[in-house]
Amino acid sequence: MSKVRRAAHAGSWYSDNEDDLRNQLGTWLGKVKASHLPARAIIAPHAGYSYCGACSAYAYRQIDPTSVKRIFILGPSHHVRLSGCALSTAERYQTPLYDLPIDTKVYEELYSCASFESMSLDTDQDEHSLEMQLPYIAMVMESRRGEFSVVPVLVGSLSPEKEQYYGNVFSRYLTDPDNLFIISSDFCHWGRRFHYTYFDKSCGEICQSIAALDRMAIETVRRNGNGYKLNMKFLKYAQSSECTSASDSSVSYAAGVLLIQ
């Protein structure tokens, strides 16, 4: 039997009932226009779906399943110290909809670089940044079920030099129109529980100060993502709650899409 990474956050971060999950994702996707097809890469948040599911739909709606054979999922490590990137030891990723096979051929190619570690199955199942993308992938790719694979990559705290190195490794896959990249990322985490409470009072309320910070980050990503034949756009921004006092907290979300002309 193949080694399966179970859907460890199903039933808590999102519904573990197939029909309920399908209806929820379908409702969110149905409210968004497919205005930027076909995405070559998207940025989508990784919080519980009750907080960020509607925002994620803006990114996932830009995927054309007919042009995708392989999906790279890059998510930050929340629970283990990692100075590079790590690959899964599983062969399939479980979702309440159906299982997603891991592309072992691409994994072999990445391991040949001698710069990728292996993460334990426990680390893999603990990590929500990868898992929260899986149900949406299964939903938007259902017409190609059994005809595509995934390439999960856990990303650590990279030095600028390592960022450039891994960027070069993945760039050759990004140029292939058969591949889609999903960058799993939240934006500003504000509040005492996150040990970050910067507040620029000139912006107005705390939530407006947070939004100003996020706009700076979004603009940096957009500017760096635009270039020769590259077009980076952000389609939706949201906050988990509107902070107005020092006792509040929030996480910011943004949905982005990269097109290659």
Rank of each mutant, 00 (worst) to 15 (best):
M1H: 12
A7D: 01
A7S: 06
A10F: 00
G11L: 09
W13T: 08
D16Q: 14
E18M: 07
D19A: 15
N23H: 09
N23M: 13
Q24I: 11
L29Y: 02
L29R: 05
L29K: 00
A34S: 06
P38C: 05
A39N: 03
R40W: 04
R40V: 01
R40E: 08
A41H: 03
I42E: 01
A47H: 02
S50C: 09
Y51C: 11
Y51R: 14
Y51L: 15
G53F: 01
S56A: 10
A57H: 00
R61T: 03
P65L: 03
K69L: 09
R70G: 03
I73L: 12
I73N: 00
G75S: 06
H79R: 13
R81Y: 13
R81A: 12
S83E: 04
G84P: 05
G84N: 06
C85E: 13
T89C: 15
T89Q: 15
E91C: 11
P96N: 09
I102E: 04
D103Q: 02
K105H: 07
K105W: 12
E109S: 08
Y111V: 14
F116T: 03
F116D: 08
S118C: 14
D122T: 12
D122N: 11
D124A: 09
Q125C: 14
Q125P: 07
E127G: 01
L130M: 09
E131K: 07
E131F: 05
Q133K: 14
Q133G: 06
S143W: 04
E147I: 13
E147K: 12
V150L: 07
V151T: 10
P152M: 06
V155W: 08
G156P: 03
G156W: 03
L158D: 10
L158R: 02
E163F: 03
Q164N: 14
Q164Y: 09
G167R: 03
G167H: 10
R172D: 10
T175C: 15
D176R: 00
D176F: 09
D176L: 13
L180C: 02
F181G: 01
F181P: 00
I183R: 02
F187K: 00
C188T: 14
C188G: 00
H189R: 07
R192I: 15
R193D: 14
F194D: 06
Q208R: 09
D214R: 01
R215K: 13
M216P: 02
T220L: 09
R222W: 01
G225K: 00
Y228S: 10
M232R: 08
M232S: 03
F234V: 01
L235P: 10
Y237F: 06
Q239N: 07
S241N: 13
E242L: 10
S245V: 14
S247W: 02
S252I: 07
S252T: 04
A255T: 00
I260E: 01
Q261V: 12
